[in-house]
Each structure stands twice: as C-alpha cells, then as structure tokens.
C-alpha cells in the first residue's frame, strides 16, 4: 500500500519564514568549529584574512549556527528524569509544518550540499527551508518515503552561502 497520499503531496513547495541565527559568525565559535573538524587553516583565524580582508568560516559552518536562543525553554532540564530521553533536541527547527506521518521512523538518508561562498566573521546568517520533493520507493521492508527539504543559508544582504538538500527517509 502506498504511503504517498495526496495529503502528503500537498506539502511539496511549502516554505518556511526566513529566520536568523541568534548569534552572528563569532571568531571563537569558528575556532572551536575548525578544531573540532580538524581543519585548522589560518584563514579561519582572527589573523587569517582572505583577499577581501575578511576572516572566514569553514564551508559548512552556516548550517550549524542555528542554536537555542537565550531565555527559551531548556529541553534538557525538562526531560531530565525521562529514561528514554535520547538527548536529541532541535536547536531551531526548520519552521516547516510537520508531515502527518505518525508512527513512521525518521532516518537521515544523506544530503546534497552546494557551496557558494564562505561566511565571514561578524556576519549574520539566515535560513529558509521548503519541501522540494517527496517521493516513494519500495524496499524489502515495504514502502519508504523520501522527504527532500531544501534550505538556503544567506547573509543579511541576501548572498547565498550554502544550499542543503537534506533527504530524510520515513518508513
């Protein structure tokens, strides 16, 4: 039986509002990121500058800028006594409506990432997402739904930095 219904197809093309990360590109955050990915290039440091006189962030820094703003509910304390809490918290969700797929597991199937320019220290970055495709494939365990969410990460001035097409599998 197909799980790709007209009700689900209706979500293709739905788009979220544009939201900004709660902090700009911070040099300390860039340093910790470059060290954690083991790519300590001088251009990511405060003294490392590109041709335009700016220090840069690694290519995939922008998608990880969307954190829980100060003063919002702490999901870790809220579920501190829940033995089934796996620690997974969404810092900031995409702003897209949830698909009505209760009971279906969600697997990270991979992504396609397009890279256009480095974010620079001090820049503010926004994200905006849309469901770009939803399709079904048969597997040995039955039908699987592939949900493709496209997110653009842009500067305040509208420069596209990174575009991510995330594929989540629901089954």
């Amino acid at each position: 039986m197909s799980i790709l219904t007209d009700e689900i197809r209706f979500y293709v093309g739905k788009q979220s509002e544009r939201v900004f990360a709660c902090d700009p590109v911070e040099k300390g955050a860039v340093r910790r990121f470059a060290q954690a990915i083991m790519d300590e290039q001088p251009k990511y440091g405060a003294e490392g500058i590109d041709e335009g006189g700016q220090s840069l962030a690694p290519p995939l820094f922008p998608p990880f800028m969307f954190r829980r703003p100060l003063g919002t509910e702490d999901p870790i304390s809220k579920r501190a006594e829940d033995p089934d809490f796996d620690g997974l918290t969404l810092s900031v969700n995409t702003g897209l409506p949830d698909l009505p797929l209760p009971g279906l597991a969600l697997l990270n199937g991979g992504a396609e990432i397009e890279f256009y320019r480095h974010a620079r220290h001090g820049e503010w970055v926004s994200q905006r997402s849309r469901y770009s495709d939803i399709y079904e494939r048969e597997s040995k365990k039955g039908p699987m739904l592939f949900v493709v969410t496209e997110t653009d990460y842009e500067t305040r001035g509208g420069d596209l930095l990174v575009r991510v097409r995330q594929v989540n599998i629901r089954r």
Binding site: R32, A36, I37, F64, R67, D86, G87, L88, S91
Partner: peptide, 15 residues
C-alpha cells in the same frame, strides 16, 4: 573527538 564535535554543535544526542 565525538564529544568535542557534539559540544561544538550543541548536539546532545546520546548515541
């Protein structure tokens, strides 16, 4: 290494 990346990205997934 994994803890460093988890902390850096505020990803608290216990796995």
């Amino acid at each position: 290494h994994l803890m460093r990346w988890s902390a850096c990205t505020e990803n608290w997934h216990k796995i």
